[in-house]
Design a protein around this nucleic acid. Sequence first.
RNA 1: GGUCCGUUCGUCUAGGGGUUAGGACGCGUCCCUUUCACGGACGAAACACGGGUUCGAUUCCCGUACGGACUACCA
Length: 511
Amino acid sequence: MSSSNVRVRFAPSPTGALHIGGVRTALYNYLYARKMGGKMLLRIEDTDQTRFVPGAEEYIKKSLNWIGITIDEGPDNPGDCGPYRQSERKPMYREYAQRLIDEGNAYYAFDTEDELNAMRDRLKAAKVASPQYNAITRATMKNSLTLPEDEVKARLAAGDPYVIRLKVPRKEEVRLNDLVRGWVMVHSSAIDDKVLMKSDGMPTYHLANVVDDHLMRITHVIRGEEWLPSAPLHVLLYKFLGWESTMPQFAHLPLLLKPDGEGKLSKRDADLQGFPVFPLEWKDPASGDISKGFREEGYLSEALLNFLAFLGWNPGNNEEIFSMDQLIEAFSIERIGKSGTKFDIAKAKWYNQHYLRLKPTSDLVAYLEADLKKNGVTTKIDLARIVDLLKERIVFPADLYTECQFFFGRPTVYDQKVIETKWTSEAVTVIEAFAAALAALPATPDGPAAKALFQQVLDDKQVKMGKVMQALRVALTGNGAGPDLMEIISILGKDEAVGRLQQAVSVLQVS
RNA sequence: GGUCCGUUCGUCUAGGGGUUAGGACGCGUCCCUUUCACGGACGAAACACGGGUUCGAUUCCCGUACGGACUACCA
């Protein structure tokens, strides 16, 4: 694919763990960049010093890396638009804020928090629909538009705290053509005089975002729908800064909703439903609380990737198994949906099961080995045989360990229901004979050989297989269900199998 | 409250002026099978409502309802 001038960015705030919705946003940006042969940027939006969380930036990078998203330009691999952390770009914002002031599109405001609250209360009391700092109310407030020029100068010189606000025009239609939603029109009276520079000298999201997107030559802003209401404000900023002709195109993504009921997916809902919202485990540095991630819960990155890509997008045909490369090939902004998407963890599990079965046995052996080690289980059994036996029936790698418990110890309890119905004298007769036949063998048989031997015993005793199989299974594993029994016998080894059969016969009462 | 956005099976969605409204997950039944799972087959299951426009609307338009986002010196 030929390279293009397409440049997109993922611009998270390092305020904690990266939410799964953020991962999807990053993914769509990435898919578009790769599809178009463009560039994917990572920009850290750390302008809120009060919410900065140490370790969050690192966590974001690790998460993107896990899911397979690579960054072309970012804090760790800067291009020619650095720095890529907003806190390191402070002077730039200052410069453009000043320009806005100089050209009459922004102004200083000195109002205290109390004064702002008083204004809002007053408007509320007067039954004003939306109390805001705007073209009308700004005339009643303490700002460089209402205060005498020398007082403004004096306040600035004295270091009085102030913010810089955008001077939003009173009557103006602001339009934008969203790639997902089409034309969106907002009247400027619905936009308030947003703070551009905070009193701590940091820019707010709106200013920093527009300035950076321009300076970083971003061509497409792909972000969550929660930004749609403020998009007209951003359009206004591009206009005031004279950047209209190179303004990026916008694509506002549908939100990820909670699985039941309505509303944005939150950590709380996910906890309630028993699934993670973070890609990787996250330890809150302040509280020390640990939240499990999809990775730790056993989700494979390729499964989560495939699942996430389909939350709000589809290729337009009936195919739904896609690798990253296939997603890149198939992706288009036009096929992104408009409506919010409920997070259906059952589908994620289905993807997981699918991808797990595609894993090479050796990978799964490694999982199982680790789990065994963690639980202090040692065994001489060839784990690859267990994995091959169990592979088709698990959803998570950890299921391997839980499903194969019976290999590592004789049953201490037997499935009561099966005993009641299947542990007949006939079954016992067959099992005893089978145990004897097994014991007489020179070596452990493989699965088919064990089956042939068992069939021989059945023929001898004139019993049908279905009548005793369940009993045999319980005797061997304690369970009423599980993978191929003859293969289990083969893996267990003939001595162990015989031992288990004898134990069951002596312990269990015929009912 | 205001502004904006949205609404096809339970869920993710395809489709689009005339279709038996398609697929997937989940669910159910059956088949396969030594059980369970896998696999296979089949099945139940949807165009929010009301008005237009039209020969015809699930599809286009307008309302209503419902849902969501936003409404901070947070992003």
